[in-house]
Design a protein around this nucleic acid. Structure first.
Lengths: 351, 351
DNA sequence: TTGTAAGCGTTATCAT
DNA sequence: ATGATAACGCTTACAA
């Protein structure tokens, strides 16, 4: 509060003590008499003393704030993660500085530089879909800045990570489609280089193989680096619909891709699930209210946030440099609804 | 960056200058020779010097960070606002510390105390629905902390404010329903004390009066302070459906209330719009994909954010204390879709 | 048990 | 044009 400055010195003067005594009393040092402590504490609270965190930061050479960068706040998945992060950070006396890359590698760089120049104690990162050069992260990590990756991780940096079991999540979703009778399942997925993309694609392929369905690479489509999901999804859908042998189901692997595909299908009057089934990763809370109610893979975003910040604080508050890192894997959850109903005559009749 | 400390002193020593000269050179003071400036700048960039913002803050007695408190980040309306705020804050060298009240007055208090104790330069506030006691805001404002209210404002604090034209927004939505043939229009709205509630209710009443439709107070329902919108909406809907003379249309005045009402109606198999029309305030980007496509009042959230932060920076950076305050009013936007189609035989036949 | 003084990295004042 | 020094608010050796 720059507009008012009750300092330790005010207390010292009022009580005829030195600032160091006051400082020690406030921090409950054992070398201060109970009586002095009482007086100091009492007076401090009577004039509503608040320590100046900036002075403390300068002195302690840490800021008790951490940075988090995500691709976009206005995305339920990420905002839930941030919720999780904040909920524990605040309890532990840290504040959270939020930044978004908006899927631009350049903006990501700028934001990271901004965050680190603001003397953050640690960094939570989910990389942009355009990120190729990870040298800045490596450099920061090497210099000793605690970093925890979540969701979209950088494979070759050895630090704590939190991810969802993307492979299994995608595997189960694919198996579900297969069980429901779909065979030409298109995978509409993120940029190829992303960790989550590789994992989800692996899950998809594994499921197909397991059920003896040949994988048609023409059905696996990636968005372009830096591209925005909605238009990318529309372009992919349009291309898929234009090809000879159309898919009979779509598996989209992100919130925005899922809604992008849905929007395309509705716009072009393609019946779901009769002409095309649809399942997607989504953390939207209203997928059941969509037309049709959407089958989804939901990620435990809040938990991912709490886990990531806990790991980060562990790194930050560790006395000795940490050299043992772990990757925590959380389970995804599936909700199957009408958008992937089986294509049996039974249901068609019911309509 | 606590792990690395290139300071102004390192530069001074390397170049055989004093820290003050370096400091002045870096800030391009006119009393430093061009040659010295060149050398300093060059060396600074060669060793990647970054000024320590904490030291600057301590010295300047400001932190170049601002706080924003909203009820919930994971709400598209607020996350869009935050986007807007961030987009200009970053350009101006400020960072944004985000806090959420989760509609709890107590949590709001704690968060505000936390923010102000973190030496923020200014505060952006949309109050929780439970807030009655605004004395903390008054006190802070009196002490000179720049505050800008947005969305849910505190009426009797004289400072800059940004709101949407809630009255007109609600008026137009109500008129739309009336034109479509609905008469028993229920207003499912926020906590009674909230500024936005009063304004939206006023708009609703004005529209009804203008069209000569008597206002039935039994159709005006408020959520309870501290309550979460979704369950509140469900409770209100259930009560409305239980009453003698049911409404034929619902006008919900927030994102969550709108989806809450929709969820209730679908769950109870009440046909929209045949048995009940529905329109609501919403900033969700997928309302057109809902079943049925939803008519909405959309607020210019991003713009609200940019406006609010600009006003705040104006207060923060003003040389003299500002005494003239203004309230900026932005226009809401309407999208009318199937959920409020007129109840004419024409459309019923088409089904 | 308490006090003195140095220092965290800057900038501003006052010399030179 | 440049340098010495104090100060921002706090913590912590070191002294007393």
């Amino acid at each position: 509060m720059r507009y008012e400055a009750v300092t330790i010195r005010d207390i010292a003067q009022a009580l005829g003590l030195s600032t160091s005594t006051v400082s020690r009393a406030l921090r409950d040092s054992h070398e201060i008499s109970t009586e002095t402590k009482r007086r100091v504490l009492e007076h401090a609270r009577s004039i509503n003393y608040q320590p100046n965190p900036i002075a403390v930061s300068l002195r302690e050479r840490k800021s008790r704030s951490i940075g988090i960068i995500v691709s976009e706040i206005a995305n339920r998945f990420f905002s839930e993660i941030i919720n999780g992060v904040e909920s524990v950070a605040i309890d532990r006396g840290y504040n959270v500085i939020i930044a978004q890359s908006l899927e631009s590698a350049e903006r990501e760089l700028r934001q990271i530089q901004f965050l680190t120049s603001r003397s953050i104690d640690g960094l939570l990162v989910s990389v942009s879909n355009e990120t190729e050069d990870t040298s800045l992260f490596k450099e920061l990590h090497q210099k000793g800045l605690p970093i925890v990756f979540f969701d979209r991780v950088v494979q070759d940096i050895d630090t704590h990570k939190v991810i969802v079991d993307n492979t299994l999540g995608a595997f189960d979703a694919t198996v579900h489609l297969i069980r429901k009778g779909y065979r030409r399942i298109a995978l509409v997925t993120n940029v190829e280089g992303l960790s989550i993309t590789k994992e989800r694609e692996a899950g998809y392929r594994a499921a197909m193989h397991k059920h003896g369905i040949p994988v048609d690479d023409a059905l696996i489509r990636h968005t372009r680096p830096g591209g925005q999901a909605e238009p990318e999804a529309a372009a992919i859908m349009s291309s898929l619909m234009g090809q000879e042998d159309r898919p009979d189901a779509i598996f989209a692997t992100s919130d925005r891709l899922t809604t992008g595909c849905l929007r395309y299908l509705k716009k072009h009057n393609i019946q779901i699930p009769d002409e095309m089934a649809l399942i997607g990763f989504s953390n939207s809370e209203i997928t059941e209210l969509l037309d049709p109610p959407l089958s989804i893979v939901r990620q435990p975003a809040f938990e991912m946030g709490t886990t990531a910040i806990q790991m980060l604080l562990e790194l930050i508050e560790s006395k000795r440099p940490v050299t043992q890192f772990r990757t925590q894997v959380l389970a995804a959850e599936h909700v199957f609804r009408q958008s992937t109903q089986s294509r049996d005559t039974e249901r068609v009749k019911l309509r």
